[in-house]
Design a protein around this nucleic acid. Structure first.
Length: 136
DNA sequence: GCCAACGTTGGC
DNA sequence: GCCAACGTTGGC
């Protein structure tokens, strides 16, 4: 089981859009590192859903319902997509600020390599961020 | 809206 | 294969 984090700009594709659709194809990735992460995702891996630009926070948990396949939105065969389904919304979203403030989360890519749109997390990091979503 | 960080492209 | 120029992302 692996743990991931994906970013989306809420005005393009928000958590609420995702929930109302019930399933979301994660297309549009045009970065090799992000692509490699998509390709490594396995069925039922858990994924944190992060809002970039607006909100700048982790809002919910999703899971992989279909492993990587060729991106149907382009003829370029280098790119892949996965399908995700919502698992649950965090009672309280976890802001980037809160993540940066936690010394145990200094190695996560959000902090180290903020531009990467599909990132892998360690189980401890994933659990820690989720637990913050349940605090207070 | 600005700018830093980073990825990609293309000339040599 | 290097590197400058350029484009994009994303936090602030």
């Amino acid at each position: 089981m692996n743990y991931w984090l994906v970013k989306s700009e809420p005005f393009k594709y928000s958590w609420d859009d995702f929930v109302s659709q019930g399933i979301g194809t994660w297309d549009g990735v045009r970065n090799y590192q992000a692509r490699n992460n998509l390709a490594a995702m396995k069925l039922d891996d858990l994924v944190l859903f992060y809002h970039s630009n607006e909100g700048v926070e982790v809002v919910g948990i999703a899971k992989i319902v279909k492993e990587a396949y060729t991106d149907p939105t382009t003829d370029d065969t280098r790119w892949v997509v996965v399908d995700l389904a919502p698992v649950e919304k965090l009672p309280k979203s976890v802001t980037l600020k809160a993540i940066k403030a936690d010394e145990r989360l200094q190695d996560v890519s959000l902090v180290r390599q903020s531009r990467l749109s599909v990132q892998q997390l360690k189980k401890e990091e994933f659990d820690l961020i989720v637990s913050k979503g349940y605090e207070n």
